[in-house]
């Protein structure tokens, strides 16, 4: 089976536990205003067979230890759920774990469910807090995301939730409260991480000739991120209970 892959990052240490090998899948149903990888949006591009991908990934097995493994990210990996399902069957034989880094907005096909069920960890990108904001800033549907979260809760999957904090859009405590509300009672969520908006992907918009809606926005200052993370950490513990 063939899958379309945008790129690889052999040390994606932050996308899950242990040493991670990042596979960035091509294609995404969302058009987030702050996206730093607009070059992963459209489908097509470099194709790999499951075997080729497994062969490539296996070269990194010696680094993985007990915790490490592959992280499928993107793009939106679950758009190619069938390909990933095929690949992870081979990975399992090779004794390699995997994690999925998803927006949860691609819908829950049977293949997607299967892939999520067998993952060691799911990183769920909780982009916005309600239908209106979700539609406005990503073009996608919040309902699909919430369904995915419910599904993960129902199968007791280990989940890390992440939110990108963009100055002027969601960088207030009031706003983050709304996100926390969505996580209330979700026992599957182990960790809630905030990521600061940065401008390192801006050049890609220029290269691709796509309009960058946030071109005047400055990166989130590190101090602001630390402050907001502390706020979230305090609240998050409470909402879990």
């Amino acid at each position: 089976m063939k899958g379309y892959i945008h790129s690889f990052e052999s040390l994606a240490a932050l996308d899950g536990e242990g040493v991670r090998y990042g596979v960035f899948m091509q294609g995404c149903p969302l058009r987030c205003v702050y996206c730093h990888n607009p070059d992963t949006w459209c489908s097509g591009g470099n194709s790999f067979s499951s075997e080729e991908l497994v062969k490539k990934v296996s070269r990194y097995k010696s680094y993985f230890g007990k915790n490490g493994g592959v992280t499928f990210s993107g793009g939106e990996p679950l758009v190619q759920a069938a390909f990933i399902k095929d690949t992870v069957q081979h990975l399992k034989v090779a004794g390699i774990n995997y994690a999925i880094d998803t927006s949860g907005a691609a819908g829950l096909s049977e293949d997607a469910k299967c892939v999520l069920r067998d993952a060691q960890l799911v990183i769920l990108d909780l982009k916005f807090w309600d239908d209106e904001s979700y539609k406005k800033y990503t073009g996608g549907s919040m309902l699909a995301v919430l369904n995915t979260l419910d599904f993960l809760e129902s199968i007791k999957k280990r989940v890390w939730v992440r939110t990108v904090v963009v100055p002027g859009i969601n960088d207030s405590e009031e706003c983050l409260e709304k996100y926390l509300e969505l996580l209330k009672g979700k026992k599957c969520v182990e960790k809630y991480e905030l990521l600061g908006f940065h401008t390192m992907g801006f050049f890609k918009y220029e290269n691709l000739g796509i309009k960058n809606p946030l071109k005047d926005i400055k990166p989130l200052p590190a101090e602001a991120l630390t402050r907001l993370q502390k706020f979230v950490d305090k609240r998050f513990k409470r909402s879990l209970g």
């Binding site: 240490a13 040493v19 990194y60 230890g65």
Partner: peptide, 18 residues
């Protein structure tokens, strides 16, 4: 890695793997 402990463990894994 995200913090000192995480970085330490990952560097050990990188060295072991290499």
């Amino acid at each position: 890695g995200t913090d000192e402990n995480d970085r330490t463990e990952k560097l050990v894994a990188v060295l072991d793997g290499y």
